[in-house]
Amino acid sequence: MKKYWAIFKTQVVNSLAYPGEIIWRSMAILLFLWVFTFLWRVAFDTSAATTLSGLTLRDTLWYLMLAETIELSRPRFANTIAQSVKDGSIAYLLCKPYDFLLYQLSVNAGDTVFRLVLTFIFGGALIWGMVGAPPSPWGWPLTLIAFAAGWLINFCLTALIGLAAFVVEDVTPFTWIYQKLIFILGGMMIPLDFYPPWLQRISKALPFSYVMYGPARLFVSPDLERFTALLAGQLAWVAALGVLVSIAYRRGLRRLAINGG
C-alpha cells in the first residue's frame, strides 16, 4: 500500500508542474456557474415561487456549484488507458511490481486534489457572493466522504471505457456520451428533484447520480439518514463496478497475450 501512497503524493506535486494550466482549468467553473445564476434566477422568477421541489434558489445554486466542482475535478483518463492498450504498453507494465489499476487510481487521485480544491474555492467564492452563505458546515465532512465514494464510481466507469479499447478502435465517442450521461442522468445541469417522477426514479437507480447528485444534494441538505442511504448505495456500486473492471482488465490481457501487443 505504501508505494501507492508514494505514487499519489508524487502526482500531487507533479500536477502543479503547469500552474497556468490548472488555474485556467479551474476558472472554467466561474464561467459555468455565472451562466447558471442567470438561468436559475429567471427560472425561479417566472415560477414566482421561493422553493421548487423543496429547493430554494440558494440551495439550487450551491447544489450546482458542488456538482460543477465534481464534474471539473473528475479525472479523464479513459484515453490514457486506451492509448496504453493500443500501443501495447499495458503489457510492459505487467512486469512492473505494481497493479496497473491501483497505479491508475493513485495517479488520478493525485491529479484530482488541487483541481478539487481550486475549483471549490473559485466556485464557492462566486456563489457566496451571488446568493449568500453555503449550507451548514457540519455536512461538509459527510459530503467529502460521499464525494470520495462517488469519485471511485467515476474511476471504475472511466476505466471501463478505457479498457473498451481492447475491442473498439476509438473510445473517444464513449467518453463524450459518458460525460453527457453524467450531465443529464447524474444531475449536473439540473437537480434531479426538478425531473418528472418517472425520470427521477430511473436516474436515481443508475450509478451516474451516485457520482454527482448524491454528494451535491447531501451538501445542501446534510442529514445522517440521507448520508447512510447514499453511502450504502455508493459502496454497492463501487463493489459491483470494481469487480467488473478487474474482470475486463484480466480478459483484455488474455486477449492481448493471444493476439500479441
Partner: peptide
C-alpha cells in the same frame, strides 16, 4: 463513422437538458 455518430448522440444527450428544463418551465 464512430466519431460522427458519437458526436450526434453526444449533442442529443446534451440537448435533453433543455427538453427537461422546458418541460418544467
Amino acid at each position: 463513422i464512430a466519431q460522427i455518430l458519437g458526436m450526434m448522440l453526444n449533442n442529443a444527450f446534451y440537448f435533453l437538458f433543455w427538453v427537461i428544463f422546458f418541460e418544467r418551465f
